[in-house]
């Protein structure tokens, strides 16, 4: 019989909790999450497995996996979890760790750069300006896009929280 020794790591649990992903230790591996997961039906993402790996501090394996990014954050697992584990919050915390370690998809980086440059996740363009005008709306919406002081404020917040690091080429 092969015996593999696995240990939980209270420090890793604290690290997850600090990123909003508390209570991962409450998971008792019933599998309701995986059975309910619409992504798991279409990909190799297995929520129960990631929760177990998180309990066992398998950080490197999780944060370098594609599966971590296959959750659509639909919350079906959270609704049905009999232990009320905030599973999506745990996934989000693990993704924060992944990004901090440099694991980010180019398409996601593009979204981050859009936010950094414009204050919105999608850019404005001439076609939209024309459509807005035709509807009797201001060509540019009354957001950071039409207020340079507000845009500068937002950028200060992004810099102060080190979001610029993610956006670097």
């Amino acid at each position: 019989m092969i015996h593999i020794e696995v240990k939980s790591n209270p420090e890793f649990e604290k690290e997850l909790a600090a990123l909003g992903g508390a209570d991962v230790k409450l998971c008792f591996q019933c599998g309701t999450c995986t059975a309910s997961c619409p992504s798991g039906r279409r990909t190799s993402y297995r929520v129960r497995k990631i929760m177990r790996m998180a309990q066992l501090d398998m950080k490197e394996e999780i944060i370098s996996s594609q599966e971590l990014w296959e959750c659509s954050t639909c919350y079906t697992c959270v609704e049905r979890c009999p232990r009320q584990v905030p599973i999506v919050d745990v996934i989000v915390a693990l993704r924060n760790m992944a990004v901090a370690a440099g694991h980010i998809y180019p398409a996601h980086k593009k979204t981050a750069v859009n936010l950094y440059k414009t204050g919105h996740t999608v850019p404005i363009n001439d076609e939209i300006k024309a459509q807005r005008k035709a509807l009797g709306l201001p060509e540019v919406p009354p957001t950071v896009l039409s207020d340079s002081a507000a845009a500068a404020d937002l950028k200060k917040i992004l810099d102060a929280t080190k979001f610029d690091v993610i956006c670097k080429e």
Binding site: L19, R95, N96, T121, A150, L154, I157, T161, F163, I166
Partner: peptide, 28 residues
């Protein structure tokens, strides 16, 4: 209208990239 509002920021991407940024920009 909320003059000068920004992206919420998006919960599935921006919050997943940097939760501190997400919370601070949402708080603004």
């Amino acid at each position: 209208d909320i003059q000068g509002a920004s992206c919420c920021p998006a919960p599935g991407v921006i919050r997943a990239f940097n939760r501190t940024t997400w919370l601070a920009a949402a708080a603004r």
